[in-house]
């Protein structure tokens, strides 16, 4: 499509920040085409019948039977098949968009009434502003400190509500340099329409220089380790008191048995819930002696602890070695 058509389309379609955005646009064009075709068919029939059979004489008698079962059955089964076909055709791309790859770069997002706080793993924190390297998949782990917000990136065609009390995730692969906007899509109060943020996608090299220029001395993992030690977690959770509390070395991603018998894979939500309310999903074989830290840690402190616990595990280490910048999904 040469640039002339693209400029018109640009007014209707937001820019395509990633390959996934282009897929969604293609799907929309397909469905629009399908709908316009059927719509014009119906409207043409309506028009032809209206003109062809308009009232000439005052007809009093009314034909007794007007129904045609086979015609009815066809236009019942027909739309059903088209709809189910389109559903299964588009399901694949949705599942791809929902399940993030393992090697995605992790970012933490905290939504708060009318601002976005972004937290890079390497330590720097940004407010209403996020810098990302082009090419590599990015996974945003999001939580809200008050009401429900929704992180909406129109140029990447993705959106995910940010819930208080639970992590939700969103992933995309920025494949185009430039500055893109973030809106809040779930009504969250007075300044809901002013809760915007900016995504700046840069070359991986540029990004590394930027990272060095802003990175503070302590990374997120360091901050997590300080919290882990200062709040006495280390006194129970260390290698030589295995019977008292589960050793947290390489716990992230492992499947463990709980008190009520069912097994659960340890993910961010499980770790967060176990920090704030340990008895909720207690692991089998341990006494309920851990105090609840619900009121103690703020969301960003929990995030720091999580980053520390994840780096503490071998599962995490071998992924880091595998991930090089520029590897697309």
């Amino acid at each position: 499509m040469n640039s002339f058509y693209r400029s018109i389309l640009h007014d209707i379609f937001p820019r395509e920040g990633s390959q996934y955005a282009a897929d969604v646009d293609a799907m929309v064009l397909l469905l629009t085409g399908l709908c316009i075709f059927v719509f014009l068919g119906i409207m043409a029939t309506l028009l032809v019948f209206s003109i062809r059979y308009r009232k000439k004489n005052q007809r009093t008698d009314v034909p007794n039977r007007s129904s045609n079962t086979w015609l009815e059955v066809t236009w019942t089964i027909g739309p059903l098949i088209i709809f189910v076909g389109f559903f299964s055709f588009t399901l694949g791309s949705y599942l791809k968009a929902e399940i993030p790859p393992d090697n995605a770069r992790e970012m933490f997002v905290v939504g708060k009434q009318w601002m976005w706080k972004f937290q890079h793993e390497e330590g720097p924190r940004e407010l209403n502003e996020i810098h990302l390297p082009m090419g590599g998949p990015v996974r945003l782990v999001m939580i809200s400190e008050d009401v429900i917000h929704s992180l909406y990136l129109p140029d990447f065609r993705i959106k995910q509500d940010v819930l208080p009390g639970r992590y939700t995730q969103l992933w995309f692969t920025p494949e185009r340099k430039g500055v893109f906007t973030i809106h809040c899509a779930e009504f969250c109060g007075t300044d809901h329409s002013r809760m915007d943020a900016k995504v700046t996608v840069m070359d991986p090299l540029e990004f590394d220089n930027w990272l060095k220029s802003v990175s503070t001395n302590s990374t997120l993992v360091d901050r997590g380790r300080i919290l882990f030690e200062s709040h006495g977690c280390v006194s129970c959770h260390n290698s030589d008191t295995i019977d008292q509390a589960p050793s947290l070395a390489d716990s992230y991603g492992k499947t463990v048995k709980l008190d009520n018998g069912d097994a659960i894979t340890i993910d961010e939500n499980y770790l967060r819930e176990s920090i704030l309310d340990p008895q909720a999903k207690k692991r089998a074989g341990y006494r309920p002696i851990m105090p609840a830290y619900a009121r103690v840690f703020s969301e960003s402190e929990v995030i720091a602890l999580l980053a520390f616990l994840k780096s503490y595990s071998s599962h995490r280490l071998e992924i880091d070695s595998k991930r090089e910048p520029g590897e697309s999904q």
Binding site: V24, L31, F86, T90, L91, S93, A97, R157, E186
Partner: peptide, 14 residues
């Protein structure tokens, strides 16, 4: 129909 399709609704919801 656009809103019923999962990947389109993710973009156009709200």
């Amino acid at each position: 129909l656009f809103l019923a399709t999962l990947s389109i609704d993710v973009h156009v919801h709200d």
